[in-house]
Design a protein around this nucleic acid. Structure first.
Ligand code: FES
Ligand code: FES
Lengths: 155, 155
DNA sequence: GAGTATACGACCATTATTGTCGGCGTTCAA
DNA sequence: TTGAACGCCGACAATAATGGTCGTATACTC
């Protein structure tokens, strides 16, 4: 429940891998897939999508592969997830354009949209670099949680 | 993507409805379902689960139905979602007991668990009452988001 | 030109969600 | 006391989303 897809997981793992190996010019999808034992072709498609949105640079041919197009610290988990899984919607209305069937009567849509924004904020605050440096990420997440509960109490 | 299920949506709508009608002793699943045009039997099952975890009190027989078992302000969105959809996991490892297939190699599990906690925190800070009183909820969510980005910047 | 890699779309398999059905126990009021 | 209105529960079918595969085209290196 409320889980992100395996594709997004794969994408984050791959980006983390690339962030951890800055010395290598480019890494093939197959290499990464082998490392983590994930389906190579599926990962390939994920990386292709990340390339299309500009998070990765690709290079075909021998010794080709992928590389980060910008520093790991400037790539947020939100960008990655958005690129792979599409827009983030906590509500069950899948699309913004065509409202879901219970559009007229649904009363929780608006409040939940706020929650949605908060979650997006959390994801935006996590970068690929944070995935590498566990301590920093842990600290940040802890801070965020604490501030949130604090906010809730003081209301 | 990252959306909660319709069941959870239905549950929240129903609880909101009950919170908005405190004068009525008990409301039947059918009444709520009719109001929002959602499948009565499905809503019934959702309400039954909410009853089982103690968020609602049920009363069988004629003029029976459901009522909140405690003040709307003390019921968090997290409780509701957890009751209906089960434990909240952002990662694709569905269950805590049996790790997913990429358990040994997966490197993003631990960092994402922190993100997961942050999101749970946000949901815990929203109560059913907040769904009724839009202004308060909006303000709270805005505060939470702002604090989170602030945290991210100062890291 | 041979080999290796990305790019892309179509496609099927698997799984999760959504919704329905039928039977049973409870309450209440005519 | 009888029946309608309701909650309770498990099984199941319909549907949708995800996960994964295949084939082919294209780009690049050697
Ligand atoms: S879930 Fe779509 S309008 Fe409420
Ligand atoms: S997704 Fe299950 S261990 Fe990483």
């Amino acid at each position: 429940m409320l889980r992100l897809t395996k594709k997004a997981d794969y994408g984050l793992m791959a980006l983390k891998y690339l962030a951890e190996h800055p010395e290598v010019v480019s890494v093939s999808a197959k290499d990464i897939a082998d490392t983590y034992r994930i389906p190579p072709q599926l990962l390939a498609k994920v990386l292709q999508r990340l390339t299309k949105v500009g998070l990765l640079r690709s290079h075909a041919g021998m010794n080709g592969g992928y590389a980060l197009s910008k520093p790991a610290g400037t790539i947020s988990a939100f960008e990655v997830i958005h690129a792979i899984d599409g827009p983030l919607f906590i509500t069950s209305c899948t699309k913004g354009s065509k409202g879901c069937d219970l559009e007229p009567s649904c009363t929780v849509k608006e409040p939940l949209a706020r929650v949605n924004e908060s979650i997006a904020g959390v994801l935006r605050s996590i970068s690929i670099y944070d995935l590498v440096d566990h301590e920093t990420a842990a600290q940040r997440a802890a801070d965020a949680s604490q501030l949130i509960s604090l906010t809730s109490l003081t209301q």
